[in-house]
Amino acid sequence: MDAWRRGLNALPRLIAGAPPIVVILVGGLALLLGALIVTRPLTSLLLLTVYVGLSALVFGLVQFAAPHQERGWAARIFAALWVVLGLAMLLGLGRTLELLPVALALLLLVGGAQAVVDALVGGTLSQRVLWAASGAAQIVFAVLSLTWPDVT
């Protein structure tokens, strides 16, 4: 299993050995955040920014911790990009709300580029096709996000 795919399950891996009360608290917090975003999507932009920033930061940190034999330098570069973008969103919260469409487009570009690199570097044929299609879709949505910010 490659490092990118392992990162998709970051939260369960991080709390796997935690006491039950920690798992319950983290689950409750995730449920509360999800409910706030679903029920108040336009009034919780700050919450969305925090959620996306934390997600990018944790994803990058998990990628740094994963073994990098398959992709070497590319995995480290993408992990650093995720961490930097996540920190930028968290540290620039006031300005990030205005720049949220641009920040989301950048995250989509990074994710798309990472999927395309994964498709070029290795895996079975079906994995490569899936990663290439996923990467292309993310890049298309990033371009749409940048060129049509009102909808974003």
Rank of each mutant, 00 (worst) to 15 (best):
A137N: 09
L120W: 11
S126K: 10
G123S: 12
W131F: 04
L120A: 15
Q127R: 06
A132W: 05
L100S: 05
V110D: 07
A115D: 14
R95Y: 05
Q138F: 15
A137V: 09
S134C: 11
L109T: 04
L106H: 01
L107H: 02
L100V: 05
V117L: 05
T96P: 00
Q138G: 15
S126F: 05
R128M: 01
A105L: 00
L97V: 09
G111T: 13
L109K: 04
P101N: 04
L108A: 08
G123T: 09
L109R: 05
A119T: 06
T124K: 10
A119P: 07
V121N: 03
L109W: 06
A133E: 07
A136V: 15
L97M: 14
L130A: 04
G122H: 07
A103Q: 02
A132R: 09
A136T: 15
L125F: 09
V129W: 01
V117F: 08
L108Q: 04
Q127V: 00
L104N: 04
D118E: 14
V117T: 09
A136W: 10
Q127I: 01
V117H: 06
G122A: 13
V110Y: 06
V110K: 08
L104Q: 02
G135E: 13
V129C: 00
L130E: 00
G122E: 12
R128K: 12
L104K: 02
A136I: 15
A133G: 10
L120K: 10
T124R: 14
A137G: 12
Q138E: 14
A132G: 12
W131G: 00
G112R: 14
L106D: 01
E98P: 00
P101A: 07
G111A: 15
S134I: 10
T96A: 15
P101C: 06
A137I: 09
L104A: 02
R95M: 03
L109A: 09
L120R: 14
A133H: 06
G135F: 13
G111K: 11
D118F: 08
A113Q: 14
W131M: 02
G122W: 07
R128E: 03
T96Y: 04
T124I: 07
L125Y: 07
L109Y: 06
L120Y: 08
V110A: 14
L120I: 07
P101M: 03
